[in-house]
């Protein structure tokens, strides 16, 4: 028998107000590296956030490793969009990465040395060891993204959900992220990432979900990432509008 999928959603529907952003999505992420691809406003981030319980779903079911999220939280990591936090916050890069270790710590007191070491190791893995004590507001955008990546790594999760990890990053950061993705895959970990750049999907990921409010295609990249299915996904926005007389979620990307 196959092990349960790292992430599985069944009949998931999410709406902001009256507008459905994710429409009856049934999909299970295969093991390894998976990209979620679709036009702006296709509900990609919403799908992730809803799976994580950050956005309430109208209906549907979400399973991580075949179980509800609450029972496997320690196996699920998260890399939010960089723009989702205030980078002027008074914290160092190390402080931010240490936040990944909070579930392993008591609610009171200092960060134990063991967890600090883990955080430093994660920073080193993304090439940011020298910036551990730098205030996060003084890092470049790409460096900030790498701090977030290090935080996700420090969670030491079996599955990491990434929301646009490659958005607006420099070449060095892109290379660091790709290296981390490969390393995670080599260790048998799983990644589901919202991705914008169609050109790099075959190079970076092994599976893909083409999403535009509903599922247009899903599977191994070489099977389903075809011109035809991409055109269907990106050209279908108007069709969806007509069909359900709804926009495909103006909020979030």
């Amino acid at each position: 028998m196959n092990p349960p999928a790292p992430l599985e959603v069944r009949h998931l529907t999410v709406a902001y107000g009256e507008k459905p952003a994710v429409w009856d999505v049934t999909w299970s992420a295969p093991p390894g590296l998976t990209a979620i691809v679709g036009p702006n406003g296709a509900g990609k981030s919403t799908l992730l956030k809803s799976a994580l319980g950050l956005v309430p779903a109208l209906s549907g079911e979400v399973r991580f490793f075949g179980r509800p999220l609450d029972t496997v939280r320690d196996r699920v990591g998260y890399l939010p969009q960089r723009a989702s936090v205030d980078w002027d916050f008074p914290a160092t890069a190390l402080d931010v990465v240490c936040m990944a270790r909070y579930p392993r710590m008591r609610w009171w007191g200092l960060v134990p040395r063991r967890d600090k070491e883990a955080a430093r190791a994660a920073l080193a893995q993304v090439g940011m060891a020298d910036f551990a004590d730098r205030q996060i507001g003084r890092l470049s955008g790409g460096q900030q993204q790498r701090v977030f990546l290090a935080r996700a790594l420090a969670q030491d999760a079996d599955l990491v959900l990434m929301d646009e990890p490659f958005a607006a990053v420099d070449a060095a950061t892109e290379a660091a992220i790709v290296a981390v993705l490969r390393e995670l895959a080599a260790k048998g970990r799983h990644v589901v990432a919202v991705h914008h750049d169609l050109g790099t999907v075959p190079e970076y990921f092994s599976s893909v979900l083409l999403l535009n409010a509903r599922v247009f295609a899903a599977g191994a990249v070489q099977d389903v990432f075809t011109n035809r299915s991409i055109a269907a996904t990106y050209g279908a926005r108007l069709a969806v509008l007509d069909e359900a007389s709804v926009g495909a979620g103006a909020v979030g990307a």
């Binding site: 994580l52 319980g53 950050l54 939280r73 998260y78 200092l110 969670q155």
Partner: peptide, 22 residues
């Protein structure tokens, strides 16, 4: 001082803290 880490986590990135199950 006791809840320093938790207060900081919630103030900096509420969503991440929630995903962690804090």
């Amino acid at each position: 001082l006791l809840a320093f880490q938790r207060l900081r986590a919630v103030a900096f990135d509420m969503d991440f803290a929630r995903v962690q199950g804090l």
